[in-house]
Simulated scan of single mutants.
Amino acid sequence: MRSGQVTIKDIAKELGISASTVSRALKDHPDISVKTKEAVNALAKAWNYKPNAVALSLRSSKSNVIGVIIPEIVHHFFSSVISGIEKIAHDAGYNVMIFQSNESFKRELDNAQALLSSRVDGVLVSMSKETKDFDHFRELRSNGIPIVFFDRICNELSSDNVIVDDFAGAFSAVQHLIDTGCKRIAHLSAPQHMLLGQNRQKGYRQALVKNKLPFVEDLVIKCDSFDEAIIKTPDLLNMAEPPDAIFAVNEMTAAGALSVIKKFGLKVPEDISIIGFTDGLVSRVTDPALTTLEQHGHEVGLKATELLVDRIVEGNMDYEPVTKVVKTNLIVRESTKRI
């Protein structure tokens, strides 16, 4: 007999099947074969498997609602993610409750408490820029509510994540600038307490290293919004040796930088090239249109919700977290020179 508390995952591993299959077999689900049901129940009995009490409690008061906390709703990437979330949730029989933190830690706390009070079955989260304490997420988990983080994830919690390949995306953006002849490339970056910001800056630096270009600290500025770009881009342009390219952490920052550059009487991309991250409507309507990285927000939403629904179906909080990565791709427009 196996020692310690046996979980659905233990049974799944032993039999070489998925945890959700074990869960459905234990519930005598009609989609599961008789042979599989017999094997699962026999092993569960032999190992003295006992269903998780919290999970059972949740199932008895199932809400069929998935909660979502995002920084902004009016944002191309997050609205694309929501479309993916809605697709999977609807197909699986869940309603979606969406909260906006508006980049505020306090509002995120309030959002989490509202979801806890609503007894949602699971939560999808992309954290605010201000979030550095994670007790509100621990509270959700301790109450038997599974969480999947997406895009902006939490390294301090053992959790499921769906992320964009920020490192590779940033590397390809800077490599493209270098391939077009740029040598002094500035980076308008996200806050470095965010993993997203760290990985995009690492990709930027690695591309410089690979091409034997120096890393110049003065060319890296914390700047990740349109308004910040309006304020801080002049500092770059007024340098004794200004940059010949800018890699911005998102498209709104890139658009702000572009606006300032044009007011300085400079031409894009002849005098300075610009690349942003996220391929939204803004990137297509600026003049010139912005070269960007497509983050595939819809796919992020699909994968995150599929993962969360699996966790809800499994009905057990004792699982090994997984991280799924969505690749980016470079979309070249008029804001960078042609190779």
Rank of each mutant, 00 (worst) to 15 (best):
residue 33 S to P: 08
residue 217 E to T: 14
residue 11 I to L: 01
residue 157 L to P: 02
residue 147 I to G: 07
residue 314 E to H: 01
residue 92 A to R: 10
residue 175 Q to D: 15
residue 136 H to V: 14
residue 181 G to R: 14
residue 23 S to E: 02
residue 177 L to G: 07
residue 131 T to D: 01
residue 168 A to T: 15
residue 166 D to N: 15
residue 210 K to T: 15
residue 154 C to W: 00
residue 315 G to S: 03
residue 77 F to H: 00
residue 142 S to G: 03
residue 318 D to E: 15
residue 87 K to D: 10
residue 39 A to C: 05
residue 134 F to I: 12
residue 244 D to C: 08
residue 49 Y to L: 11
residue 337 K to T: 12
residue 128 S to N: 11
residue 176 H to S: 13
residue 62 K to E: 11
residue 49 Y to N: 12
residue 78 F to V: 00
residue 7 T to I: 08
residue 99 F to M: 14
residue 265 G to F: 06
residue 311 R to V: 02
residue 157 L to D: 07
residue 249 V to M: 09
residue 168 A to W: 07
residue 314 E to M: 13
residue 249 V to L: 04
residue 90 H to F: 05
residue 8 I to H: 02
residue 318 D to M: 12
residue 3 S to P: 00
residue 6 V to N: 07
residue 6 V to A: 12
residue 105 F to G: 00
residue 244 D to I: 06
residue 324 K to F: 11
residue 186 A to P: 05
residue 318 D to H: 14
residue 60 S to T: 13
residue 232 K to V: 06
residue 7 T to K: 06
residue 160 D to K: 03
residue 69 I to Y: 01
residue 213 L to C: 08
residue 109 L to K: 09
residue 333 R to T: 13
residue 117 S to F: 08
residue 334 E to N: 14
residue 16 G to P: 10
residue 98 I to Q: 02
residue 250 N to Y: 06
residue 330 L to T: 14
residue 73 I to F: 09
residue 264 F to Q: 12
residue 166 D to P: 07
residue 303 K to S: 02
residue 324 K to W: 01
residue 145 I to Q: 12
residue 151 D to F: 03
residue 127 M to Y: 00
residue 67 G to V: 04
residue 233 T to Y: 03
residue 284 R to V: 05
residue 292 T to A: 05
residue 322 V to G: 06
residue 321 P to G: 13
residue 30 P to H: 11
residue 98 I to N: 04
residue 283 S to W: 01
residue 238 N to K: 15
residue 161 N to L: 09
residue 208 L to V: 06
residue 216 V to E: 15
residue 194 M to F: 11
residue 159 S to Y: 08
residue 321 P to A: 12
residue 138 R to H: 14
residue 108 E to F: 10
residue 45 K to F: 05
residue 42 A to F: 03
residue 292 T to Q: 01
residue 155 N to M: 04
residue 325 V to W: 03
residue 103 E to T: 07
residue 192 Q to K: 14
residue 319 Y to V: 14
residue 127 M to E: 06
residue 145 I to C: 14
residue 89 A to Q: 00
residue 338 R to F: 07
residue 161 N to A: 13
residue 234 P to F: 09
residue 304 A to G: 02
residue 298 H to T: 06
residue 241 E to W: 01
residue 317 M to H: 11
residue 98 I to L: 13
residue 221 I to N: 07
residue 70 I to T: 04
residue 75 H to R: 02
residue 14 E to V: 01
residue 152 R to Y: 02
residue 70 I to E: 00
residue 112 A to E: 11
residue 244 D to T: 08
residue 43 L to C: 10
residue 331 I to Q: 12
residue 289 A to W: 01
residue 233 T to F: 04
residue 277 F to K: 02
residue 24 R to K: 15
residue 198 Q to E: 13
residue 290 L to I: 08
residue 310 D to G: 02
residue 272 I to N: 05
residue 166 D to C: 15
residue 223 C to P: 04
residue 232 K to A: 07
